[in-house]
């Protein structure tokens, strides 16, 4: 009897590891195929099977992709937009969350409702109307179109910040007030620093979201010198269609920076995903 249970357990463990290893294989296989084919010379990509690693690693494709796809300026534009948009979202997000959680006032209900409404209406569906707004404001084909758009449409951080602020005891605010601190000082010197872990999460999640966003920059920054990571890669396929060694090299150049950020800062990403998708 006892041995039967043990062998069933053993079988369970084997199945468990087998499923996990198959999953790991399914995740890594496309990346592996891309990597080996990005390192093939033009003749090797035509003559070798796609499954076969090249005998000679041709790193030259990465240089060609970088120069041909103007990826340098794409990275510059992407990081310019990310820095300003994320900074703005952190500052404005903490301010809104502070005002909405620490005070009661007449319009509060409606403001909360407005933010909830925006969560329900995906930005993507409203693009048809946002397009006109961007044009009317004279922002079309500028980096500021993207920055302002991200400031006006990314609102998940407000929910993450509100959850965190509710956990900060009011007694901290009250004792600061006894010492004569202004509300602004309470925000700046008590609340904002205590939100640091939430800020780390918000900053990383927004960085990844903006880095991977495709359609907004595609619509609002059509100029070739205003490419960002996604659009530069999208435009790359045109002139280099069927040169899969170059396309794979360009794809990996674009994909790898986020993987590096992710591997270093995993902890905050997992915390944020749970906080962001499960709203109170």
């Amino acid at each position: 009897m006892k041995t039967r249970v043990r062998s069933a357990d053993f079988l369970g463990v084997v199945v468990k590891y087998m499923v996990l290893f198959i999953a790991v294989f399914v995740v890594l296989f496309p990346l592996y195929i891309s990597a080996i084919n990005s390192l093939k010379s033009n003749s090797a990509i035509n003559n070798l099977s796609p499954l076969q690693a090249p005998s000679h690693l041709d790193w030259h494709n990465y240089v060609t992709a970088w120069v041909g796809g103007d990826l340098g300026s794409a990275f510059f534009n992407t990081f310019f937009i990310i820095i300003l948009a994320v900074l703005g979202n952190v500052i404005l997000g903490t301010m809104v969350a502070f005002a909405l959680t620490r005070f009661d006032f007449a319009l509060k209900k409606y403001i909360m409702g407005a933010y909830l409404l925006v969560i329900f209406i995906p930005t993507m569906t409203v693009q048809v109307a946002i397009f006109g707004v961007i044009k009317d404001l004279g922002l079309f084909d500028t980096r500021f179109a993207m920055i302002l758009l991200y400031l006006g449409t990314n609102v998940v951080q407000i929910y993450i910040y509100m959850q965190f602020i509710r956990r900060i005891p009011m007694s901290l605010d009250e004792s600061a007030m006894l010492d004569g601190a202004s509300y602004f000082r309470i925000y700046r010197s008590i609340i904002f620093p205590l939100l640091a872990p939430a800020t780390a999460t918000v900053a990383i999640l927004q960085t990844i979201a903006i880095y991977n966003d495709l359609y907004s920059p595609y619509l609002y920054m059509p100029s070739s010198n205003l490419g960002v990571a996604s659009t530069a890669l999208l435009r790359f396929q045109g002139p280099y269609s069927d040169q899969w060694n170059l396309i794979m090299a360009a794809s990996l150049i674009i994909a790898i920076p986020v993987v590096v950020i992710y591997l270093i800062l995993q902890r905050y990403i997992f915390a944020g995903i749970v906080a962001g998708s499960v709203r109170e």
Partner: peptide, 12 residues
């Protein structure tokens, strides 16, 4: 996969 750039994923 979740953090990779969508364009890169689709090309792969």
């Amino acid at each position: 996969p979740y953090i990779l750039n969508s364009v890169a994923i689709v090309y792969m």
